[in-house]
Write a protein that binds this DNA or RNA. Sequence first.
DNA 1: GACCATTAGTTAAGAGAAATTACTAAAGCC
DNA 2: GGCTTTAGTAATTTCTCTTAACTAATGGTC
Lengths: 396, 396
Amino acid sequence: MPNAFTPQAAGDLNYLKSLNRSTILATVRRHPGLSRADIATHTGLTKATVGGVVQVLLARGWLREGELHARGGGRPGRALYLDGSRHFMLGTEVGVKGLRLVACNLQGDVLAQQQSEQAPTSPEATAARLAGMLTDLCRSPDLQSRTCLGLGVALPGPVKPDAPVLRLAPNLGWVDVEFLDLLRQQSLEIAGSWLLDNEANAAAFGEFYFFDGTPPESIAYLCASSGIGCGVVSGDNFPFISRGAQGLFGEIGHTVLQPGGAPCHCGNRGCAETLVSGWKLREQLDVAADASLSEALARRGDEPRVKASLAQAGEALGWLLLNLHHTLNPAMLILGGSLTRLGEPLIAPALAYFEAHQNGLLRQPLSIPVKVIGDSTFTAARGAAAEVMARAAVEL
Amino acid sequence: MPNAFTPQAAGDLNYLKSLNRSTILATVRRHPGLSRADIATHTGLTKATVGGVVQVLLARGWLREGELHARGGGRPGRALYLDGSRHFMLGTEVGVKGLRLVACNLQGDVLAQQQSEQAPTSPEATAARLAGMLTDLCRSPDLQSRTCLGLGVALPGPVKPDAPVLRLAPNLGWVDVEFLDLLRQQSLEIAGSWLLDNEANAAAFGEFYFFDGTPPESIAYLCASSGIGCGVVSGDNFPFISRGAQGLFGEIGHTVLQPGGAPCHCGNRGCAETLVSGWKLREQLDVAADASLSEALARRGDEPRVKASLAQAGEALGWLLLNLHHTLNPAMLILGGSLTRLGEPLIAPALAYFEAHQNGLLRQPLSIPVKVIGDSTFTAARGAAAEVMARAAVEL
DNA sequence: GACCATTAGTTAAGAGAAATTACTAAAGCC
DNA sequence: GGCTTTAGTAATTTCTCTTAACTAATGGTC
């Protein structure tokens, strides 16, 4: 797929340097413990080049040297790891139901987290509240000795592909919000670069960037909560987020599955969200907007009506997974969002539908793995932090 | 979206040079008649760099100098154009109904074309037949004074993303065919690099690469013929084809629109192809496999059954366009493939459906242009030739 | 018509990055 | 201890882009 990190106009030597630095960093990220020599063979760069870049990264606290490991004869190589002790990135998610904040180190470990279950109101008030929580979070003892690389904000709606502007968050009622500017007016003292992204994109990016082990060629993260969104990330050394012309890539909640079906808030009928989404389940099962959907349905799990609704919604979710796969063909599907907390009654039929229908395109099993994140409370926030790290690596 | 031209492992100076050369070439391609100075301001490169690259491109016959154009005072700039007279690329499409061949110059003009309406049989026999036709085509007088940059072959099925192997062409009955190897055994004398791609990808690439005027940020080409496929191309200077993990990106013909609907040859039920596709229309309207669908239906255009079928299929096509848009958000949609020859009875309802439903995601008109290619006989073949040119530009 | 301002394009020198080569460092093996 | 092997560094070379100076060509002005 495309590449996140292509020079807009043309390339100078600076770009080349940045490219190689990011490549080396990505190699260590994916294969912790490699030596300089390993990196050289792995990336195709020469020992000398790798050595130079590694020196810079060590000096800046992005890498640390580990133990020696001998391999038969010869001088043993010095293992290299991401240094998780010198920096941190802030990530936040402004969700329909509340705010989530995390601070991560370079390895993706969460150093501190915080959440508020109070639903956002206006953009301005939310920015003020978020600023307060961020200030609190930054007081965590574990962060004091570290350098901040920046702040990422995830929002539940499409974001302009070329500017940090939220275009529309239907479930918040926000339109064309330049949220970072509102935050800046709060005179926050947060160093580094700030960025804004859609929650599904951020979550997808985080799952890809901080993947345990060698990440797949690409992933699609399906975010099922109040609405249904999807983020796609791919790319070897520069994870790339597919955004589309207007930032609407992955707005699969409004793909039409039943022409003439139930009306959707987008104006059409029979959108995917009218079959499976938080707002639809609440409507169908009479759960109040301020109550927790998962708790309410857990209590009422034995009601036939609840069972049937969840099974039906689950099947629709599987249907969406299938169409997503046949359209984007990601190497891995990840299912997250608050709806995964509804558990087996929803997830099992979704996976069953997908498993039963995914083959056929090549007349052989495709076996695309589907990973379900049971608790994705901080997934998008952590992903926003990952985006900050990726940008910092380029600008280093 | 991602970027076609990212170094797999790491970047050397060679890569940088190639990057800038391609950028400059892309600038001339998109804005014929620019001077060196214009290119410099346009790309951000310096006059010196541009001058050097242009000299090389002139020497190799990729560019030609045109007239002077004065702009007020000062020395007038020398217009630069792609040189359409020194090279050519060969492109072929192995279609379900026959073979199509074109030779293009650097500007995308078709210098020679040829087609055979005889359906392909085995891969080996088809390679032999194609080789003969290619040899014929290369005898065209207009090609004699030119250098061949290579050969591109488009096939109706998914191709491995990292190797020139056709994985499956259901409508040809081919499985895992290394078609370029079969062609090589024909001892063809065609210089340059050879490549293989899916027909929708090739067509999409060609429409993007040889776009008249400044191309949109990205395009999705929906190919409606025997089956339904889709190709997506994006990227500024290095048009990138989205391929997915297994080369199945854009296999939207098998997205499920009606669970439990009519059976599809892929094994599932209710795939998009069961609602709109060449094979479905033939089945529905009793058109023999060896007859021309468009001619048969043109004759029978007044039958209510034909009208109803086409209207229904057209609406399904619009539905597909809509879901494609909401999933990929391309800046432009192009509708091609042999089914567009069925004309208004099919196309009008498709466009009407799309127009009526495309808005809503941002609460404002999205106005994604939809371009219909009435006769796309040589579109995929020309696109394959475009891919050859793009590769040659990188390897130059 | 000489001169100047302005823009286009080339040439030459300088800076930066990676490749090549040669070297030092540190281990195992004999 | 010496040899072999591999890791990492240092010096040199090569390549590319940039900077700056220069030449080229035009229009405008006195």
